[in-house]
């Protein structure tokens, strides 16, 4: 078993009096793809936002490589090597593709030539559209840009919030292929998905969240065969 890169302990997060995350404990091992699945409002996004420093937890701890992240500003968290690809892609529509990628490397002061080449090798389409405004890209291209932009920060852990949301099935396949490629390059992935089938197929380890708590955890493929999971998240019709 590889070392733990991210360690979340008894995390509690409230929004305006409503507790969205009620004591989540989870580990992410280095070099793995870990997924959190669960229905809307289960607290998945909030958990990732807490790791990224966008929301302040009530209690608990989030340790990245042994360092406590709670209380750090988002820029310090990015600098330490954790990056979040937000839900809905959130590319900057008024910036060109290249400028979006530059924004991803905002905190870096070293040479970016190799990183641009790496991102463009993963997503040749982005190279073609380098000077186009990101707002004019298709949904799939925007998702690729959002992932590429995150990679520009040279992360050790990349968190993705619903990367398949609203994309055509064939594009979803592409995105997951990319996730595997990134992972094989040594980047740990923490993935949230509503598309539980795709997520479980690709994940080394999976957590199931329900109303702010972890209900179960297992290897991705094992969970895929679990009957209660099939009923709750995959629909019984799966062959």
């Amino acid at each position: 078993m590889s070392e733990t890169i991210l360690e979340i302990n008894d995390l509690r997060v409230s929004y305006g009096g409503i507790e969205a995350v009620k004591g989540i404990t989870l580990d992410v091992h280095k070099g793995k793809i870990v997924t959190l699945i669960g229905s809307n409002g289960a607290g998945k996004s909030t958990t990732l936002k807490a790791v990224a420093g966008l929301v302040k937890p009530q209690s608990g701890s989030i340790k990245f490589k042994g360092q406590e992240l709670i209380g750090l500003s988002p820029d310090k968290i990015v600098k330490s090597g954790v990056v979040l690809v937000p839900e809905g892609r959130r590319v900057f529509p008024n910036l060109t593709v290249k400028e979006n990628l530059k924004m991803g490397a905002y905190l870096r002061k070293d040479d970016l030539t190799e990183d641009f080449e790496y991102v463009y090798s993963l997503f040749p389409r982005l190279k073609e559209r380098e000077w186009q405004l990101a707002g004019t890209l298709s949904g799939g291209e925007q998702q690729m840009l959002a992932v590429g932009r995150a990679l520009m920060s040279k992360p050790e852990l990349i968190m993705m919030d619903e990367p398949s949301l609203g994309l055509a099935p064939i594009v979803v396949k592409d995105i997951f292929k990319i996730i595997r490629t990134i992972n094989e390059a040594g980047i740990t992935v923490l993935l949230i998905e509503q598309n539980a089938f795709m997520a479980l197929q690709n994940a080394d380890w999976a957590y199931v969240l329900e109303t702010g708590t972890i209900k179960t955890q297992r290897e991705g493929l094992e969970l895929l065969d679990d009957e209660t999971i099939q009923e709750a998240y995959l629909g019984k019709t799966r062959e």
Partner: peptide
């Protein structure tokens, strides 16, 4: 929010 995720203060 997304700007913050890029590390912008």
């Amino acid at each position: 929010e997304t700007s913050q995720l890029m590390g912008v203060k």
